[in-house]
């Protein structure tokens, strides 16, 4: 278009239009928009174009896009519902897990309590046993000590009697055994 314009100008045409033939006449005072000789043509092709676009849209494009949008909406709704479902399941699983944990903890506590009680009982019986045995042993020991002490006293008595007899004999006296033992007895008691 520009080249035509240039060539027209190059022809030195001073008139307002710069194109030849019917176009010059058609363009009239300068606005091609007001050249009514082309209106019929433009309107005809415009109507054709509009009808074609209308059928393209109403028969193919718009139903297709509407379907795609509806499908997408459905998919999104389903996904959200499924996500909610999964979330609820997860929450349920969590509560179940926590319940199980609580049960296990209380059971463990019960077991440990029971074990502690058992051990305590065992310790108590063992202690009692040991006490009894200790008491028995100390009784025996006491008896042994008493025996030892008794025998020691006897020995002391015998030694004292013998010593007394020997002393009496050494001093030139003579004493019968009964008198000496009586004297030793009375001395030892004193």
């Amino acid at each position: 278009m520009a080249t035509e314009t240039q060539s027209a100008a190059g022809n030195g045409m001073a008139d307002a239009v710069g194109v030849e033939g019917h176009e010059a006449a058609a363009a009239g005072p300068g606005m091609p928009q007001l050249d009514f000789s082309t209106w019929g043509n433009q309107i005809f092709w415009l109507l054709v174009a509009l009808v074609v676009i209308y059928f393209i849209l109403s028969r193919v494009a718009l139903p297709r896009i509407a379907a795609v949008l509806a499908e997408r909406q459905g998919t999104i709704t389903n996904d959200i519902a499924r996500a909610d479902d999964l979330k609820r399941q997860a929450a349920e699983a969590e509560t179940a897990y926590e319940q199980a944990l609580k049960d296990a903890r209380s059971e463990a506590q019960a077991i440990s309590q029971r074990t502690r009680d058992e051990i305590k009982a065992q310790v108590a019986t063992a202690t009692a046993d040991a006490d009894a045995r200790i008491a028995e042993k100390s009784g025996e020991a006491d008896k042994a000590i008493a025996e030892i002490r008794a025998s020691a006293m006897e020995n002391v008595e015998a030694v004292a009697r013998d010593t007394a007899e020997a002393l009496v004999a050494a001093l030139g006296g003579s004493a019968d055994t009964a008198t000496i033992s009586q004297a030793v007895d009375s001395r030892m008691k004193g």
Partner: peptide, 20 residues
């Protein structure tokens, strides 16, 4: 609107683009 001022080298045909 479609006046063409032809002064020196300047040539304006602003409305020619609309010719059918």
């Amino acid at each position: 609107m479609a006046t063409e001022a032809e002064t020196g080298g300047l040539v304006f045909h602003p409305m020619d683009q609309f010719i059918v």
